[in-house]
Amino acid sequence: MNIFRLAGDVSHLVAIIILLLKIWRSKSCAGISGKSQVLFALVFSTRYLDLFTVFVSVYNVVMKVVFLALSYATVYLIYMRFRNSYDSENDTFRVEFLLVPVIGLSFLENYAFTPLEILWTFSIFLEAVAIMPQLFMITKTGEAESITTHYLFFLGLYRALYIANWVWRYHMEGFFDQIAVVSGVVQTIFYCDFFYLYVTRVLRGKGKMSLP
């Protein structure tokens, strides 16, 4: 464990909590892509199956359980509790365009052709594109509430910190997980455009981030 990975995990946790609290307190999920949240719940469900097969550390177990619980709670709030505020007209990204290539690729590119490894690889590739429906929804509505942008900021920060973590582990431990790194870099690139808008619009106190 290193400070970059720990900060990344904390940033990830903060992002998930920001979103969950926003929905819970505003009793609304307007502007939130339910599809992205379902994809994230799927990412955790397929990646954390090793909870039942290997014990890495208490931290590892606790964080996995927390991520699973919070992501399912978020999906529950969107599609059950506050479903009447769910903006289905704008949450129209075709997730099959993400799932088919990701499934195909995880069968082609993996470390071992075993169910657990293929599911892990699937979760890595899926996480890289899971935010697309949310980013698509923001471009479609042309704006994002500031809290949603903070959620996206911390999500992007988590990915940027993980890249720092991989640089650190490569130099300190000679560790290099090619699938995770390649997919993680692609995922982080998707946030770059958002980061620019976040800094130039949200942090300048505009409150909402409205796209040009």
């Binding site: 990975r5 995990d9 990830h12 990646r47 090793d50 290997v54 890495v56 550390s57 590892n60 964080m63 996995k64 991520f67 470390y111 071992a112 490894e117 892990w120 993980y162 973590n165 997980d177 090619q178 699938i179 995770a180």
Partner: peptide, 10 residues
């Protein structure tokens, strides 16, 4: 590859 021996990152 050693990665297959269990992934320690979240």
């Amino acid at each position: 590859a050693d990665e297959a021996a269990g992934h320690d990152e979240l």
